[in-house]
Amino acid sequence: MRSASSGPEPEPVGLTLVAGPEFSDELKSLDATMTSVEKVLDLPALRAQAADLEEQSGAPDLWNDPEAAQKVTSRLSHLQGSLRRVEGIRSRIDDLAVLWELAEGEEDQDTRDEALAELDKLKKDVEALEVQTLLNGEYDAREALVTVRAEAGGVDAADFTEMLMRMYLRWAERHGYKTEVYDTSYAEEAGIKSATFKVAAPYAYGTLSIEQGTHRLVRISPFDNQGRRQTSFAGVEVLPVVESDDHVEIPDDDIRVDVFRSSGPGGQGVNTTDSAVRITHLPTGIVVSCQNERSQIQNRASAMAVLQAKLLERRRQEEQARMDALKGDSSGSWGNQMRSYVLHPYQMVKDLRTDYETGNTQSVLDGEIDDFIEAGIRWRKSA
């Protein structure tokens, strides 16, 4: 079982005892893993894509279509960042071999310790890069639409749902990913009933899709005047953002559009016009809404984008169900009951699929969830 410490990072145990041949073997193994990662990522193809996008970004008429321009510049930035990351790690591996040779030649223990510390950091960085190569699903490279929704637990569930929304927004902020909140439905006493937001970053869907499922919180309820322990639940749904070539057609006759006044916490009105939009897809009963844009037109466009994403996911699930039926696959969904957050009587966050856990609950709720995501992606690939 993997676990994380609730305290500060411990010093690598026993690394200073590694002999020269052992260090060389570990470095060779790391070099081989990195070579495999580079092959899977196909660096020549990435460089060619980056060069093509650079040429597109220099076109004088690029910003005549702001949406297309944003996609070009965002994709270019991501590719350039990925290339810098891979090339930087490769350079560090090469430099480390030289550093260790220097330390051994001069029998300098301080330099040995520096090399050992760098080896430990490189192992973690290569492992994280290796996880990226596992995101090769049909929609993994897409941006993500995330919906958090209160389930059983009353006001505690609504409060927990708001905690989860904050966790994901903080996670995105830590990585420098742009987010856009489309809709927030506030609960009467505290927290939110639901919220939908977009994470605008390449591979956001592949990365965050591991978070889909039911999250459970156990704590002393701040809303119970008797101070009793309360268990509450919140659901997380993650969808890929629809792109222009997805062909998700929605006839006008298939939808009903209602407009209403946006509301804030406690039912307070946040504007004086009926600019919020609710769209009902009549054939499926799917309902989406958007109230966070400034105009009714913008809210309708955002709501339609969410509806298209839900219909795309529905189509994908139907196709997967047909494939599973052909394969005789009767396994249930892995997404349900996927993580527990225990704040009382002890502190622990545990993923019920991977067994990864940590006692540092506050850091997790502050958005430090990369270790859980990495463990989940590896688990999903091996399941």
Rank of each mutant, 00 (worst) to 15 (best):
R2G: 08
R2A: 08
S24G: 13
S29E: 08
S29T: 09
D31W: 10
T33N: 15
E38Q: 13
V40R: 15
L41K: 11
L46V: 06
A48E: 14
A50G: 05
A59T: 14
P60N: 13
L62V: 10
W63H: 15
Q70T: 14
R75P: 09
L76W: 06
S77R: 08
H78A: 15
G81E: 12
R85Q: 10
R92F: 06
D94A: 13
D95E: 14
G105Y: 03
E106M: 07
D108C: 03
A117D: 12
L129C: 10
E130P: 14
L134H: 09
N136R: 14
A144G: 05
L145D: 01
T147G: 08
V148K: 00
A150W: 00
A158M: 00
D159V: 01
T161Y: 01
L164P: 13
Y168C: 07
L169M: 08
E173P: 04
R174A: 15
T179I: 00
V181S: 02
D183C: 02
E189R: 06
A190C: 05
A195Q: 00
T196K: 01
K198T: 02
V199D: 03
Y203F: 15
Y205S: 03
G206R: 06
I210M: 09
I210Q: 11
T214L: 06
L217E: 08
I220P: 10
S221M: 03
G227P: 06
G227N: 04
R228I: 05
D246H: 06
P251K: 11
D254T: 04
I255H: 09
R256G: 11
R256I: 13
F260T: 05
R261K: 05
S262P: 14
G267C: 10
Q268A: 14
N271K: 14
T273I: 14
R278E: 07
T280M: 07
N292T: 06
N299Q: 07
S302W: 04
S302A: 12
A305C: 11
V306C: 06
R314H: 10
R314V: 04
R316C: 03
Q317W: 07
E318L: 10
D324S: 07
A325M: 05
A325N: 05
D329V: 15
S330T: 15
S333Y: 11
L343K: 02
K350W: 01
T354H: 01
Y356Q: 04
E374N: 05
E374S: 04
G376S: 00
R378E: 10
K381Q: 11
A383E: 10
